[in-house]
Amino acid sequence: MKTAQTTSATDHAKHRQLNGWRVFWKVVLYIVLIVSVVSMVLPFLWMITTSLSDNRYAMTFPPKFFPSSLHFDNYVKIFTNDNLGLYLRNSLIITIPAIIGQLVTSSMAAYAFARLRAPGRKILFLIMLSTLMIPGEVTMIPTFIMFHSLHWINTFWPLIVPNFFGNAFNIFMLRQFYMSIPLELDEAAKIDGLGFFGIWTRIILPLSKPVLITIAIFTFNANWSNFMGPLIYINDPKLYPLALGVFSMTNTGSMFTPPQWNLIMAGNMLLTLPMLLVWYIGQRHVYESTNVFGRN
């Protein structure tokens, strides 16, 4: 009886000691977390506060984090003084058809690779996967020469049309997902008289919504933030998409006129917010559908 009591007493002491350590580690953990979260979020907040401040104020030294007065009119100025409304329109003209093109053509190819038997299918699939390894720089120059000879420079075509030929990454992701849809559904649809086209539109596409949304998000992000493409193909400032347009605001044309950083940051916000919004709405589907890489 006595021994049992002493062991429980030492256990208790040990437990308290462990608790002490645990509290210590918790404190360290939260300090590390808070310091790193502040360093993650602070630059972003600085973008917001600069975008709302007066330009003379933005240039003061030392910089102050909170502007004394809020200039929401900066967000009006970027549409009236700078051409950001036009740039926004251009970005949408490029991005929306690009998303439609990728969704249709990638899912067509993925359906064929996942479901249709034909001679040459395996080798074509391997060829498609191997194109994932080709860096864009190798194909960039001949592609430019081709579009140049089509007189497509200073048009949106070079930025839109390539999206209508599918994309190996998207095709692969969709194909992996299609492989996980039970074949019995196809068989049942066949008995009901659906052809290959009907199975794709009536069975496969409705079941693959999360992956299609993911591809729409990836395509939106890639085209919305594309900088090099417009830089190569578009010289006319009236045709600039937003990413190039906001960058062009840093060029004031004279060394002695400093760029208006408050307006640039407002433009930055306009460029950033749609991507954040799209990501926030769609993240659930992205996590769900990128799981397909784990299966086979």
Binding site: R117, R121, F164, F165
Partner: peptide, 17 residues
């Protein structure tokens, strides 16, 4: 017919390739 459909469905990717 299946082969024809296969090549029709991958034709956008194939032309792009």
């Amino acid at each position: 017919k299946e082969t024809a459909f296969f090549y029709a469905f991958i034709s956008p990717w194939l032309i792009g390739f």
